[in-house]
Design a protein around this nucleic acid. Structure first.
Lengths: 174, 174
DNA sequence: CCAAACAATTTTAAGCTTGAAATTTCTCCC
DNA sequence: GGGAGAAATTTCAAGCTTAAAATTGTTTGG
C-alpha cells in the first residue's frame, strides 16, 4: 500500500469545478489522498517502532497495551483491551503472556466469572511505562514540529471528517 | 498505538493563543493528532486487507508489490521494489517467491550482474492486478465518500506539510 | 592480479497478526 | 437440574515483518 510517488507524475485532475467532467469511476484524487495519509502514518510508525526497540528494547504493541492499562487503574478485561487496540483477541493472549513474564502487568481471573481475565499494570510496569510515554511524546512532537498549531488544528478537523466518513462507510457495509 | 479515544475525555487545551502558557513538554495536541491519523489509516487498512482476502483471496503486500510492478513494464530490481515499498529486503524475497509460484510475476537474473534479480508482472499477473486495482479504487472511494472535494484538497495540502515535517525530522536525526 | 570493500539478495530467529477452530465457563430456559 | 447456546479466551496454522548475519557476486586500489 506504499508508494505514494506512484502517482506523482500523473496529470493533475483537480480543477475544482470539473467534477462532473471526470470519467466515471475516476478515483484518482481519493487514491492520492489515501496514499499520502498512509505514507505519513507509515513513516511515523516505523520510526517509533525503531526507537522503542533501540531505546527501550520494547515494541509498539507492548507500548500500546500498557498505554491502555495506564488509563484503567483497576485493570481491564482482555476482551476490552482487544477492542480498544483494534486487534484480534488471539493477539492479546500472546502479548499478555510476555508482559506478565517480564513483570510489567499482572493478570487475575475474575472470581465471579472464571472465563474473564483482568490485567493491570504492576508498579514496575507503570514506572517503566511512564518513562517510555514521556519520551514517546517527545518523539511525536519532534516529528510533527514542522506543522504549525494552525495547521495542526485544521488537520484535526479534517481527519475528524475523514474518520466519520470511514466509520459511516463501514457501518453501511455491515 | 491505537486508542485515539484514550484522549477524548481530556480537557481541550487548544485555545489558539496560549501556546506560551502550556507547561513545558506538553505534547497533548501532537499526540491527539497522531492518534487520529493512525486511527484513520488503521481503519482503512484493515478494511482493505479484509476485502482483499475475501474478494480476491489476496493480501495487501501482494497487491502493493504488483502495484509497483504495474508502473514498470520492463520490470524492476528487487532492491528498488524494497525501497519503494518501504519494507526490508528480506521481506521482498518471500513475497516474490509466492507470487512467482502463483504465476503472477516472473523473475530474471540480470546477465550483466548476476547478483541482480529483475521481476515483472506476467500477462496473467497484470490481468489479475487490473481487476483488483479497479475494485480497490472503488473501495477507497467508498470509504472517503463523506469527504468533500474541498476537504479532500485541504487534507492533501495539510498532509503534504506533515510529510515534509516528518521527513525533515528524520533527516535531522541521521 | 587479487584481496578488500562493497552490493544485492537470502537466510535466520524472533515477534506480530489474523481468522477459524477449540476450550472453558456461564446463563437461561424447559 | 440439565442441556443448548452464548461468551471469553486460547490454540493453531499461515503469513507478514524486521534486524542481523551469511552468501554470492562485482569492483577497485595497490
Amino acid at each position: 500500500m506504499m508508494g505514494e510517488d506512484k502517482f506523482d507524475t500523473s496529470p493533475e485532475w483537480v480543477d475544482g469545478e470539473t467534477k462532473a467532467l471526470e470519467a466515471p469511476g475516476d478515483h484518482r484524487a481519493e487514491l492520492r489522498l489515501w496514499l499520502r495519509l498512509l505514507t505519513c502514518s507509515t513513516l511515523v510508525e516505523s520510526e517509533i517502532r525503531r526507537r522503542l526497540r533501540e531505546e527501550f528494547d520494547s515494541t509498539l504493541p507492548r507500548f500500546d497495551l500498557m498505554a491502555q492499562l495506564e488509563r484503567a487503574p483497576d485493570g481491564m478485561v482482555l476482551g476490552e483491551v482487544s477492542k480498544r487496540m483494534m486487534v484480534s483477541p488471539g493477539n492479546i493472549t500472546v502479548l499478555v503472556e510476555r508482559l506478565t513474564e517480564s513483570g510489567h502487568i499482572s493478570r487475575t481471573t475474575l472470581p465471579t466469572d472464571r472465563r474473564v481475565q483482568v490485567i493491570a499494570l504492576t508498579p514496575f510496569g507503570r514506572a517503566e511505562f511512564e518513562k517510555m510515554a514521556a519520551t514517546h511524546a517527545d518523539w511525536i512532537s519532534e516529528l510533527f514540529a514542522g506543522v504549525s498549531p494552525q495547521d495542526s488544528s485544521v488537520l484535526m478537523d479534517e481527519l475528524a471528517k475523514l474518520k466519520r466518513s470511514i466509520i459511516a462507510a463501514l457501518a453501511r457495509n455491515s
